[in-house]
Simulated assay, not measured.
Amino acid sequence: MSWVDVSQRWKLKLQQVDWYLCFGLLFLLFVLLGLSMAAWKLNLVVNDADALPIEAVAIKGERDKTSDEEIQAALRDLMQRSFFSADVNQVQAALEALPWVYQASVRREWPAKLKVYLVEQQVVAHWNGDAWLNIHGQVFDAPKRESVGTLPLLAGPEGQSKLVLTTFRQLSELLKINGFNLHSLSLSPRHAWHASLDNGIMLELGREDKMARIQRFINVYPTLAKQSKSVAKVDLRYDTGLAVGWKNAQEESH
């Protein structure tokens, strides 16, 4: 085969090539490369805390037990990230880990702010000495605050906090409308109830018929109050009666 024949064959093949398709594919390749470069640069900017820093955190919600310093310490590391790379879920988790915070919601606000709404724990009682109960009967640990004030003392086995709080509310309401204030309530491991009033009287309620036994105490108390001695303890664990323990003279002198 001569060089002339080879040349003619190549010319024929070149004429058969779809140049529009080739140029189209080449153009698409350049477009994809350009988009990849743009995405890479955008990722660098988005994750660059110096380029798009979080300039402010706006805190809303009523709070008197969680300080600005505690919030700043909780968010210190997270604030080193950029506005877009900061994970609002992590910010929320960090705030909800603060002892007196019950719930937090976080959202971004363009161009460089995080808006936070905090809900603090609404504490209603002491629990087992050193813990607290919120309005939902949930146990939480937190340092003491002056704004908490005086609270009832509740106690019970693990997992029984909601039952104890519900029972306290029921008994307290019945006592209050009859002029008594319930100071403490505890549930023993054997499910027996013990209560005390703010006047120092101890009430043994047993396992059953708590409301009926409280009503029995209310009915009989006017008679007990007429006695020369002060009531120290009333055992109501009887079907129809009760047993009374009296303060002795020496205790009363103190």
Rank of each mutant, 00 (worst) to 15 (best):
W110N: 09
P111W: 07
P111K: 04
A112E: 11
A112G: 15
A112M: 02
K115P: 07
K115T: 07
Y117Q: 15
L118H: 00
V124I: 09
A125C: 01
A125D: 02
W127I: 00
N128M: 01
G129I: 11
A131K: 14
A131E: 08
N134Q: 08
V139Q: 04
D141S: 12
P143Y: 12
P143A: 04
K144A: 11
R145L: 01
R145P: 07
V148P: 13
G149Q: 03
G149R: 02
T150F: 10
T150S: 12
P152V: 01
P157S: 01
E158R: 04
S161Y: 13
S161E: 07
K162Q: 12
T166H: 12
R169L: 01
Q170A: 12
E173H: 07
L174A: 11
L174R: 09
L175R: 08
N178Y: 02
G179E: 10
G179Q: 07
N181S: 13
L182H: 09
H183N: 15
H183A: 15
S184C: 11
S184L: 07
L185C: 07
L185T: 08
S186N: 08
S188F: 05
R190F: 03
R190Y: 08
H191M: 13
H191I: 04
H191N: 14
A192I: 01
A192W: 07
W193L: 04
H194I: 03
A195V: 06
N199Y: 13
N199L: 11
G200Q: 09
I201K: 03
I201N: 06
I201Q: 04
E204L: 15
G206H: 11
R207E: 05
D209N: 15
A212M: 08
I214M: 06
Q215H: 10
R216E: 05
Y221C: 01
L224M: 05
L224G: 04
